[in-house]
Amino acid sequence: MTLAKWKVGIVSCSGEEIPEGTISRIATRLVLEKLRPEETVTICLPLFLAGGEGERTFAKLFPTITVDGCEKGCAKIGTEKYSGKPFATVVVSDVLKKCPTLTLKSRDKLSAEEYEFAEKVAEEIAEKVDEALRRQNEQLRSEKH
């Protein structure tokens, strides 16, 4: 099994100003701590953008998934600029459109409903992690043959 050899980098926006940013960060942490702890790492976005060489090199060599709170897409744009096209992107405000009854209010302590939504976003990220690893394995297999 080669899955664990590859890591997927999750690049979350910092999003301190808006509730969607808090959802991005918490969903990212849920993937890292609970859903795919062996397969993922995270990258501190401002460090990455400000020239963190380790972060940039990692993102060049390994697949990345960007998680943005809003349509400004700082994580996606930054990753594309400094390391290459991310494998996949998740935008919280887009996922929110699938939950028309939910209004995000808190950027500090999430309500039970908001936390449930963060879990939903985390599941979407985790699906993309699996897809990224599947692709990596297929690529490795085809290179061996």
Binding site: L45, L49, K72
Partner: peptide
């Protein structure tokens, strides 16, 4: 007030 650090870094 606060703002997103990523917006500063991205030059918004």
């Amino acid at each position: 007030r606060t703002t997103c650090l990523a917006l500063v870094t991205m030059g918004d």
